[in-house]
Amino acid sequence: MKEIRGAEVAKALKAQMTEDIAALGGYIPQLVIVRVGERPDDISYEKGAAKRALAMGLRCTSFVFDAEISHEEFVMEFQKINKDPEVDGILMLRPLPKQINEKEIERLIDPGKDIDCIGPMNLARVFAGETDAYAPCTAEAVMEMLKYEGIDLKGKRVTIVGRSLVVGKPLAMLMLGQHATVTICHTRTADFQGTCHNAEILVAAAGKAKMIKKEHVADGAIVIDVGINLDEEGNLCGDVDYEEVKKTAGIVTPVPGGVGSVTTLVLLKHLIQAAKQKRR
Results as ranks from 00 to 15, higher is better:
135 A>M: 09
6 G>N: 07
27 Y>P: 05
133 A>Q: 09
166 V>K: 12
160 I>W: 02
133 A>K: 12
164 S>N: 08
230 L>H: 15
41 D>Y: 12
9 V>D: 06
21 I>N: 07
229 N>K: 09
196 C>G: 01
175 M>K: 08
81 I>F: 00
14 K>V: 01
61 T>V: 09
187 T>N: 08
100 I>M: 06
38 E>V: 05
99 Q>S: 02
172 A>G: 11
57 G>R: 13
23 A>W: 14
150 G>A: 09
161 V>R: 09
153 L>W: 09
177 G>V: 03
276 K>P: 01
133 A>S: 15
176 L>G: 02
216 H>Y: 13
1 M>G: 15
97 P>I: 00
100 I>W: 04
80 K>W: 12
268 L>S: 07
119 G>N: 05
24 L>H: 12
153 L>K: 05
169 K>A: 00
237 C>R: 13
71 H>I: 05
121 M>C: 04
154 K>R: 14
280 R>H: 15
89 G>W: 09
164 S>E: 04
49 A>W: 06
84 D>P: 06
120 P>C: 03
225 D>L: 01
37 G>M: 00
47 K>E: 06
183 T>L: 00
258 G>I: 06
70 S>D: 14
32 V>E: 03
107 R>G: 02
48 G>W: 09
69 I>H: 10
207 G>D: 11
92 M>H: 15
215 E>H: 15
111 P>N: 06
127 F>V: 14
234 G>H: 06
63 F>T: 10
115 I>Y: 13
86 E>W: 01
70 S>E: 08
147 K>Q: 10
273 Q>S: 08
188 R>A: 01
243 E>A: 05
251 I>S: 00
14 K>D: 04
271 L>M: 15
250 G>H: 13
156 K>G: 04
108 L>E: 11
172 A>M: 07
107 R>V: 11
125 R>L: 00
7 A>V: 12
163 R>V: 11
99 Q>L: 00
7 A>F: 09
36 V>K: 12
158 V>E: 06
20 D>G: 03
49 A>M: 07
255 V>I: 07
168 G>H: 07
270 H>C: 02
195 T>V: 13
98 K>A: 08
30 Q>I: 00
209 A>D: 06
102 E>R: 10
138 T>W: 04
210 K>I: 01
73 E>Q: 11
167 V>T: 10
